[in-house]
């Protein structure tokens, strides 16, 4: 089975995704954007309905909706009455509700919602693999181009801005990249697991890293290893592909965090 074309395509797509998600995932963890990404990913369901209704590849619909939600988040974030976490909650639920309504109103054969929620890594086509590698190369090039300002913002936003880093521009580009990556990754691991792919390998790598570049490298290696192990698991015990990958990386992350937490007091020491 592991030499079947569909299996090789799944392997290639997963490895490509592991490489693209690594730097983005590290910044998501460094800048505490996990819930932000979660909301954007959740909104992808509307994009799925949009794509199906317009008879387009759902990837484009997801990308458009992800960008719209990101723009709304930035816009709502300008007011100071309600915190960003609450705005995320609002959009998160609105997106899910709108997505379910939209898919239910589509005409034609019933939509395989579970397929979009959990993805089917073994249904990846050759075109998908090309899109992942092409789009992934573009995303990686963009991240490399703004690596220094991104790092400076991740260390201390205000300091970076005072030193002349264009915070608005860098943040906007980063969010666009994130939306693109989510739209592409969704097809493979599904909406619910897409953020796992962005967050979990980076979480696993953090306690084992002492500088940012090595953390990105380690994140990519952990993700790639999880893809190989997860697909092997899937082929062996016939478990679903995407969740199998995620469960492998989650176990690695759990072990890594346990290692970091050993011998530490229960409450975080207050540094001052």
């Amino acid at each position: 089975m592991i030499f079947e074309p569909f299996f090789l395509r799944a392997l290639l797509a997963g490895l490509g995704l592991a490489a693209v998600a690594a730097p983005l995932g590290c910044f998501v963890v460094w800048q505490r954007l996990a819930y932000f990404g979660e909301t954007v990913a959740q909104a992808g369901l509307i994009g799925v309905a949009l794509g199906l209704a317009l008879h387009m590849d759902v990837t484009w619909g997801v990308m458009a909706v992800a960008l719209l939600v990101a723009a709304l988040l930035l816009w709502f974030g300008r007011q100071k009455m309600v915190g960003l976490d609450s705005i995320l909650g609002l959009l998160h639920h609105a997106a899910l509700a709108a997505g379910v309504i939209a898919t239910s109103m589509l005409q034609g054969p019933p939509v395989d919602l579970a397929g979009f929620l959990f993805g089917d890594v073994f249904a990846v086509t050759s075109t998908d693999v090309i899109v992942i590698f092409g789009g992934g190369a573009l995303v990686l090039a963009a991240v490399a181009w703004m690596w220094q300002p991104l790092l400076r913002l991740a260390v201390h936003e205000e300091l970076a801005e005072a030193e002349g880093v264009d915070r608005e521009k860098i943040r906007t580009v980063f969010i666009v990249l994130l939306a693109v990556a989510i739209a592409v990754a969704m097809k493979i691991v599904g909406i619910l697991l897409v953020m796992a792919f962005l967050v979990v390998p980076a979480v696993a790598a953090r306690p084992l890293s002492r500088d940012p570049e090595r953390m990105v490298l380690l994140t990519a290696l952990i993700a790639a290893g999880s893809v190989v192990a997860g697909l092997w698991l899937s082929a062996t015990v016939d478990s679903p592909g995407g969740p199998s990958i995620v469960i492998v990386m989650s176990i690695i992350a759990g072990l890594s965090l346990s290692w970091a937490a050993r011998g530490r007091p229960a409450a975080r020491p207050i540094k001052d």
């Binding site: 963890v29 460094w30 800048q31 505490r32 220094q148 300002p149 790092l151 400076r152 991740a154 260390v155 030193e163 880093v165 953090r206 890293s209 002492r210 500088d211 940012p212 090595r214 953390m215």
Partner: peptide, 13 residues
């Protein structure tokens, strides 16, 4: 949350 040594921080940018 970002892993970084003091020396690296002082050479950023």
């Amino acid at each position: 949350v970002i892993p970084m040594t003091v020396e690296r921080f002082l050479s950023l940018g």
